[in-house]
């Protein structure tokens, strides 16, 4: 406790970011240290798990020191430690979990293992201070595409998810196919603004009626087929048109399903999370569809959309309030479900 506020230390090491943060009363960010490894992995063309794990170990304690220092607090002021225990790379996760358990034990404070995806949703509590459950959440990132009902703090009920590729993955794959390269999502987003979204008829995959699941893996094949046909016919390819048409096929399905879910569950708000939440067309379309049905759409600012320790601290705080506790036997769970 400091100045009457309950302080949570949040630790996140599930992928290529070593992140530690101090959050007051589950809402106020006192510090948010993010040590990224992107530069290290670029030369390998993607995250190398062994290198990521080694790097997390070298950085974690320094990040803890910096988070405490920037927050102007000392270890005795910390009331709770929260840590991502899955999903993620096992070697990366275990650095955070080992550190968090040691902190909890050495300082005699409670420990909470946090589901990384719940953390992404909780990022919204840090951004929108009067946001409270219930709401419908849409989590769209490089590895996940989920529609999640949040009836109360610390309860996340997944009602739909992808059956193959995640939305961000689809953006990245198609970007590669049409030669836009890495990082795919933002590049497609940008190119699409100059293109015609009705130029090419990409098939919308709705699955069975009433399903909130997704399937995006066919879009890459469709893009490849289209490119082949055009090339064989000797026609010039308009990359912007392909980007815009592809993107529309993805975001239309996501936006429609999210809004339907909110309506069916009687939620007045849709809370977005994950990297793809930055997609400009998705934001536009979902806001359009939602406002037509009297539903409000919220999302965190870009820095809170990507992996960070503050969102983990916030999720841990609410789990703690709900009476949850993790034991010293907390383990990393790389394939943790929602």
């Amino acid at each position: 406790m400091k100045d009457g506020k309950f302080l949570t230390l949040g630790i996140e090491t599930s992928c290529d970011e070593t992140a530690v943060s101090v959050v007051a009363d589950g809402r106020g960010i006192l510090s948010n240290i993010i040590s990224t490894q992107i530069g290290i992995h670029t030369q390998f063309g993607g995250v190398v798990p062994e290198i990521a794990s080694r790097r997390h170990l070298e950085k974690i304690n320094d990040c803890v020191d910096r988070a405490l220092e920037e927050a102007g607090v000392c270890t005795d002021d910390i009331d709770l430690v929260g840590v991502t225990y899955g999903p993620g790379l096992v070697g990366a996760l275990l650095i955070g979990v080992a550190a968090a358990k040691s902190i909890a034990y050495a300082c005699d404070i409670p420990l909470i293992g946090v589901n990384h995806m719940h953390g992404h949703i909780a990022a919204n509590y840090l951004e929108h201070h009067d946001l409270e459950p219930p709401f419908m959440s849409l989590v769209v990132s490089g590895g996940h595409t989920n529609i999640v009902n949040v009836p109360e703090y610390n309860r996340c009920e997944k009602i739909g998810g992808t059956r193959d590729d995640a939305a961000g993955e689809a953006f990245d794959k198609v970007a590669r196919v049409i030669g836009l390269g890495y990082p795919g999502g933002p590049k497609v987003d940008k190119a699409a603004r100059e293109g015609n979204r009705d130029a090419i008829a990409f098939k919308r995959v709705w699955l069975e009626p009433g399903s909130y699941d997704f399937s995006f893996s066919g879009l890459k094949t469709q893009a490849l087929n289209y490119l082949n046909t055009e090339r064989q016919a000797g026609r010039e390819i308009n990359v912007n048109d392909v980007a815009a048409s592809f993107q529309e096929a993805v975001v239309e399905v996501i936006a429609e399903k999210a809004v339907c879910a909110a309506e069916e569950f009687g939620q007045k708000r849709i809370v977005m999370a994950g990297g793809v939440a930055s997609n400009s067309r998705l934001r536009e379309l979902i806001s359009e569809k939602a406002s037509a049905r009297g539903i409000e759409v919220l999302r965190p600012s870009p820095v809170l959309c990507t992996d960070n320790g503050a969102m983990i601290a916030s999720a841990a705080y609410y789990a703690y309030q709900a009476g949850e506790r993790s034991g010293y036997d907390l383990d990393a769970v790389p394939a943790l479900e929602f």
Partner: peptide, 12 residues
């Protein structure tokens, strides 16, 4: 990594 991270953090 588990042993070294734990030792580092307990020491810290």
């Amino acid at each position: 990594r588990i042993g070294v991270t734990t030792a580092r953090t307990l020491g810290q």
